[in-house]
Amino acid sequence: MQEAFLGIFISAMATGLGALPILFLNKISPRLKGTLLGYASGVMIAATTFSLIPEALHMSNLYVLSFGLLLGIFVLSMIDSKTANMNLKNSRITTNIDRKTLIVIVAVTLHNLPEGLSVGVSYGAGQEGLGLIIALAIGLQNAPEGFLIAIYLLNQNVSKVKALLIATMTGAVEIITGFAGYFLASYVQGIVSYGLSFAAGAMLFVIYKELIPDSQEEEEKFPTYAFAIGLISMLVLTQKFG
């Protein structure tokens, strides 16, 4: 049990760990932001298409994957449309945070819920070594997500410490679902595939709708190469540790 708790905690906190470099950055220039977003997009598209989707398919079938994926896109699309007309600048909760940044935060948070569940279920399943492998794989995905959130927040003139805390909190939700998955492994295992498919859809929406267009605002060359490097980087890490 102690190993499961440690694995769940470290996997969840990887989001905050990934955001730590933000403490050493000043105001991000548009060119640097585009390059970083391009890199993050590559990492996240690799994590989604080569980790989340194959895992969901392995646990279920194409029908479950398609349903969850489309549901994730639909939910994020609804949130996007509902927040389009909101005056976020006057909100106490979202002061100085624009709509795009809010969408990214919501997407990553929703994305992390089923991931935490999958880590908990993997430990609760009782298969030796499985929990550690899944926790490591999810942790590798969480780190660039935390950095991504921190980039958006820093660009909105949010303080570095506050950006780090918000990024960490989006990953901390995995602790709750991770413990739930561990203790209820025999009951919730069947829904993990739906959750992972949903997470994949939510992330694909954000990558296509927000990250890639934002990365191309100033120039195309450096963000495009950064995208390819990010994708390769995640593939290398997945192949080596996943």
Rank of each mutant, 00 (worst) to 15 (best):
I175S: 01
P144S: 06
F147D: 07
E174T: 10
L211E: 02
V158S: 02
P144T: 09
Y208P: 00
A199T: 08
A172W: 05
N142D: 05
A163G: 07
I176V: 14
S186M: 12
P144G: 03
N155C: 06
T170L: 10
S193H: 02
F183N: 05
N157A: 10
M169V: 14
A143M: 15
S193M: 04
I212M: 11
L153P: 00
L184I: 09
T168E: 10
I175G: 01
S159F: 04
G146I: 08
T170K: 05
Y187M: 14
N155P: 00
A172G: 06
E145G: 06
Y208Q: 12
I151R: 09
N155A: 10
I166Q: 11
F147G: 05
P144D: 13
G146F: 11
I212K: 13
T170G: 10
V158M: 03
I176M: 11
I166H: 09
L211G: 07
I207R: 01
V192K: 11
A163F: 00
S193N: 01
F147H: 08
T177H: 05
P144Y: 13
K162R: 09
I191C: 14
V173E: 09
N157H: 15
K162E: 03
Y194S: 08
A185E: 14
A150C: 08
M203E: 02
I191F: 14
A199M: 12
V206G: 01
I176E: 10
I149T: 11
Q189Y: 15
A200G: 14
P213G: 09
P213D: 05
E210R: 00
N157K: 15
Y208E: 00
P213A: 05
E174H: 08
M169T: 12
P213T: 05
M203Q: 11
Y194P: 04
A180I: 15
L204C: 10
I191R: 13
S197L: 04
L148H: 00
T170Y: 11
A200W: 07
K160D: 07
T168S: 12
A199H: 07
G178H: 07
Y182V: 03
I149C: 13
Y194L: 12
M169N: 02
G181A: 03
A163V: 00
P144L: 12
I212R: 08
F147Q: 12
Q189A: 15
F205S: 14
V173I: 14
A202F: 04
I149N: 02
E174I: 13
S197A: 13
I151A: 06
G190I: 09
K162D: 01
N155L: 01
V161A: 05
V158P: 04
S159Q: 09
Q189S: 15
E174L: 14
E145T: 02
V161Q: 11
G181H: 08
V192Q: 04
I151V: 15
S159G: 11
M169W: 10
A200H: 13
A150M: 03
